[in-house]
Computed example of a mutant assay.
Amino acid sequence: MSDTIQHVTVKALAWDLAADVYLPPGFDESKAYPAIVSVHPIGSCKEQTAGNVYGTALADEGFVVIAFDASFQGASGGEPRSIEDPVFRVQDVSYVIDYLVTLPYVDADRIGVIGVCGGGAYAINATMTDRRIKAVGSVTGVNFGRLMHESFSRYDPIGALDAAAEQRTAEARGAEPNVTQYLPASPEAAREQALTELDLFEATDYYRTTRGEKPGGRTEGLLSRQGSALGWDAFHRAEVLLTRPLCVVVGDRPGAFGAYRDGLEIYRRAASKDKELVVAEGFSHYDLYDKPEPVKIALEHLVPFYKKHLSP
């Protein structure tokens, strides 16, 4: 298991991103390694599944892996805090690649990206426009724009846009920020409120317990800055622009966040001539975060996928 982690900073638009670089066993800085950017879930942080599960596992297989906190989140810079803006999330991937290509031990022609949950769709979207990315993997990827249009706006995107506009004006005039909590405070609170839908409850079990809870993982969003997500679609123009090799991993126990449907959609729409759909049968969205058996299924496909497409 990779135990060599370097804590680094990456220059973004006008602030720094906090990142962890996972180095493979027997690392030799005189060599040039393939590298993978690992993108964390919505409202999450680099220490949650993107780094400690998939980052570590891929580093063990010989890749240099960099997991980073998104702008406005975790230990990264950017104000105000707790913005979940897809435009910035996608740009962050390119800033991280800007950093990778300066490292003498990274082969700039062998860079891939992987993302989990919302990070999966961000990784896919980044691959459409940053041609430095040679292969993309999505693990239980969720199109955050689609999710905002549907359940996260209570199926009223125009009403949500009006509320965001009103709140942003109020904050510009000095009002306190309105921070939306995506999840109940605990699994017990979820049960008390009858919030036991599969994805919502399992998210609470992951993020609100010692199973996955980390200081940087806030699972919250600023109401006044939700307009960008409501007007965004991770898969826009995938039929033309998504030509890089693609590996999509989903579980077949679907929940309200929609990773299963999003996975099938992007697999169908992608222009990629080399694409693979992996269905972890009997497992859910959050099982693929850290449960050994479904993670093993994912990695049994992702590791050879990256080795094939990031080979010399």
Rank of each mutant, 00 (worst) to 15 (best):
L23F: 07
A194I: 01
L161V: 10
I124P: 00
D290V: 03
I36W: 00
D205K: 13
L222Q: 00
H301S: 14
E239F: 08
V249H: 05
G227F: 02
R253G: 03
E61D: 12
Y155S: 14
D162K: 14
S44D: 15
E47A: 14
R253V: 13
L198S: 04
K31P: 02
V136T: 15
P104V: 04
P80H: 04
N125C: 14
I297N: 07
G120S: 05
G216M: 05
Y95L: 04
Q6N: 12
K134W: 06
E213K: 10
I297C: 05
D98V: 04
F144R: 05
S284E: 07
E293W: 08
E29A: 15
K214P: 00
F63C: 09
A203R: 13
Y95C: 09
R81H: 07
I36E: 03
L246R: 07
E29K: 15
G282L: 10
Q167V: 00
E202S: 10
Q6F: 03
P80D: 13
G227M: 12
Y22D: 10
S151A: 05
G227P: 06
R191D: 01
K11Q: 13
V116A: 08
A19I: 04
N125T: 14
A135Q: 05
A108G: 02
T209S: 15
Y99E: 02
V295Y: 06
G137D: 01
R225M: 08
V179Q: 00
Y122N: 14
M1A: 13
R154A: 12
P215R: 04
H7S: 11
P34W: 13
V101R: 02
R269N: 13
G115A: 02
Y54F: 15
V279L: 06
A108T: 02
Y95K: 05
R168A: 10
F201W: 14
A67K: 00
D156S: 11
P184T: 14
Q91M: 15
S138F: 07
N143P: 02
R268G: 04
L246T: 03
Q48G: 01
A190P: 12
A123T: 13
A19R: 05
L161E: 11
Y54S: 08
E150Y: 02
K134P: 06
R132H: 00
E47Y: 06
E293N: 05
V113R: 00
D130F: 00
L288T: 04
G255K: 07
D252K: 12
V37R: 00
L230M: 14
P34A: 14
K31R: 15
D92F: 06
G258I: 09
Y95A: 11
